[in-house]
Amino acid sequence: MHKTPLAGPVACLLSACSVAAALATWQALAASGAVAPELLASPAQVLSALAEILREGYRGTTLAHNAAATIGRCLTGFGLAVILGVPLGLLMGLQPRAAAALGDIVQFLRPLPPLSYMILLILWFGTGDGSKVALLFLTALPIIASAAMAGVRLVPRPRILAARSLGAGFWQVVWHVVLPSALPSIFTGLRIALAAAFSTVVAAELLAATDGLGWMVLSASRFLRSDVILLGILILGVVGMALSRALLLIERRVVHWHGRA
């Protein structure tokens, strides 16, 4: 990094100022009456909605339960995609035959809008968590697999050959040579995939959901509770940020040698 991004405290202060400015603008807009309060709640109203929901839950479901349901679905779908996608991508990177056989499917799935096949997943996997997790899984899988495959292609061939000539078996090569070199690329893919899965989570809760933050926002939309809608958006945004940050922390731990190679 050629220039230290602003020192911690200063940057934090500046960020806090800009967030405060945004909140003030919002408050002023809501107070001005330019938009019907029914359609745009003020920050104060959102706060009181938060208090109300913390106290009584939203339509019988606690906030913690909704948050847990959403995070759980997201992480399950994402986790399954990691478990399947990383080996799949590595295989495709190492075995041109596998890449030829599966590449088209991955390429087709990757840009496909998840909402387009939501109804099919409901028909196939039912209205429970199965279809919701499947949606998030299918959103994350092709991204992770492509990233892992691209990562393998970055591994210097001589290194593989050297390991081979030193008597390393296939699995040893994968574990000790390929995976470490491919990790940075894999993690880039994981970050993108997690963001994609999280931004699809409301779509997953669009149909036949009885809980979740997405359900809460959509249900509040139906009743035009703009305070709850805005609250839900804020919570979703914060949860999304937290998940990305958490993944970044894991990445720093796992790929600490990245950049030194």
């Binding site: 963001a195 931004s199 699809t200 945004g237 999304g240 990305s244």
Partner: peptide
């Protein structure tokens, strides 16, 4: 950072 993972449907 807030906007990036925010589900658009919300």
């Amino acid at each position: 950072e807030f906007l990036r993972p925010l589900p658009q449907l919300a």
